[in-house]
Protein backbone atom coordinates (compact mmCIF):
# COMPACT_ATOMS: atom_id res chain seq x y z
CA UNK A 1 0.00 0.00 0.00
CA UNK A 2 1.04 3.55 -0.66
CA UNK A 3 -0.42 6.56 1.07
CA UNK A 4 -0.91 9.80 -0.81
CA UNK A 5 -1.74 13.12 0.82
CA UNK A 6 -3.25 15.69 -1.52
CA UNK A 7 -3.51 19.36 -0.63
CA UNK A 8 -6.00 21.48 -2.56
CA UNK A 9 -5.88 25.25 -2.13
CA UNK A 10 -7.67 28.15 -3.79
CA UNK A 11 -5.43 29.87 -6.30
CA UNK A 12 -3.88 33.20 -5.39
CA UNK A 13 -6.28 35.99 -6.27
CA UNK A 14 -9.41 33.88 -5.68
CA UNK A 15 -11.38 35.31 -2.78
CA UNK A 16 -11.55 32.97 0.23
CA UNK A 17 -14.33 34.26 2.50
CA UNK A 18 -13.91 31.30 4.89
CA UNK A 19 -10.24 32.10 5.37
CA UNK A 20 -11.24 35.68 6.10
CA UNK A 21 -13.71 34.62 8.79
CA UNK A 22 -11.09 32.36 10.42
CA UNK A 23 -8.56 35.18 10.37
CA UNK A 24 -11.01 37.56 12.10
CA UNK A 25 -11.94 34.86 14.64
CA UNK A 26 -8.27 34.33 15.48
CA UNK A 27 -7.89 38.09 15.95
CA UNK A 28 -10.90 38.15 18.27
CA UNK A 29 -9.27 35.36 20.30
CA UNK A 30 -6.30 37.71 20.73
CA UNK A 31 -3.90 35.83 18.43
CA UNK A 32 -1.74 38.73 17.37
CA UNK A 33 0.00 39.11 14.05
CA UNK A 34 -2.01 36.71 11.87
CA UNK A 35 -1.30 38.25 8.48
CA UNK A 36 -3.42 35.96 6.32
CA UNK A 37 -5.45 32.71 6.47
CA UNK A 38 -6.37 30.57 3.49
CA UNK A 39 -8.56 27.49 3.93
CA UNK A 40 -8.09 24.41 1.77
CA UNK A 41 -8.77 20.67 1.66
CA UNK A 42 -6.65 17.61 2.38
CA UNK A 43 -7.34 14.15 0.95
CA UNK A 44 -5.63 11.03 2.29
CA UNK A 45 -5.82 8.25 -0.25
CA UNK A 46 -4.55 4.72 0.29
CA UNK A 47 -3.44 3.10 -2.95
CA UNK A 48 -2.87 -0.58 -3.49
CA UNK A 49 0.22 -0.08 -5.59
CA UNK A 50 3.74 -0.22 -4.11
CA UNK A 51 5.20 1.64 -7.02
CA UNK A 52 5.78 5.30 -6.25
CA UNK A 53 5.72 6.34 -9.91
CA UNK A 54 2.46 4.55 -10.49
CA UNK A 55 1.00 6.17 -7.35
CA UNK A 56 2.01 9.62 -8.61
CA UNK A 57 0.45 8.93 -11.97
CA UNK A 58 -2.82 7.82 -10.39
CA UNK A 59 -2.98 10.79 -8.06
CA UNK A 60 -2.34 13.27 -10.89
CA UNK A 61 -5.18 11.71 -12.84
CA UNK A 62 -7.53 11.79 -9.82
CA UNK A 63 -6.79 15.47 -9.32
CA UNK A 64 -7.35 16.21 -12.96
CA UNK A 65 -10.63 14.32 -13.24
CA UNK A 66 -12.31 14.88 -9.90
CA UNK A 67 -10.50 16.26 -6.88
CA UNK A 68 -9.56 19.69 -8.21
CA UNK A 69 -11.44 22.35 -10.15
CA UNK A 70 -8.60 24.02 -12.05
CA UNK A 71 -10.63 27.21 -12.57
CA UNK A 72 -10.15 28.18 -8.93
CA UNK A 73 -7.94 25.56 -7.28
CA UNK A 74 -4.34 24.36 -7.35
CA UNK A 75 -2.93 21.22 -5.75
CA UNK A 76 0.13 19.61 -4.33
CA UNK A 77 0.65 16.09 -3.09
CA UNK A 78 3.11 13.90 -1.25
CA UNK A 79 3.49 10.16 -1.55
CA UNK A 80 4.16 8.95 1.96
CA UNK A 81 4.99 5.33 1.26
CA UNK A 82 3.77 2.33 3.23
CA UNK A 83 1.70 3.40 6.24
Amino acid sequence: MTKAKIYVMLKEGVLDPQGGVIQRSLASLSFKGVAKVRQGKVFEILLETHDRREAERQVQEMCRQLLVNPVIERYDFVIEGTP
Binding site: V14, L15, P17, Q18, V21, N69, V71, I72
Partner: peptide, 17 residues
Amino acid sequence: LTEAGLLPGVLMRNRSL
Protein backbone atom coordinates in the same frame (compact mmCIF):
# COMPACT_ATOMS: atom_id res chain seq x y z
CA LEU B 1 -22.97 22.68 -16.13
CA THR B 2 -19.83 24.57 -15.07
CA GLU B 3 -18.31 21.46 -13.44
CA ALA B 4 -19.07 19.51 -16.62
CA GLY B 5 -17.34 22.16 -18.71
CA LEU B 6 -20.49 22.96 -20.71
CA LEU B 7 -20.31 26.50 -19.36
CA PRO B 8 -17.19 28.42 -18.29
CA GLY B 9 -16.41 29.65 -14.77
CA VAL B 10 -17.40 28.23 -11.39
CA LEU B 11 -19.92 28.91 -8.62
CA MET B 12 -18.19 29.51 -5.30
CA ARG B 13 -19.43 29.92 -1.74
CA ASN B 14 -21.43 33.15 -1.28
CA ARG B 15 -19.32 36.10 -0.17
CA SER B 16 -21.38 36.31 3.06
CA LEU B 17 -20.96 32.54 3.67
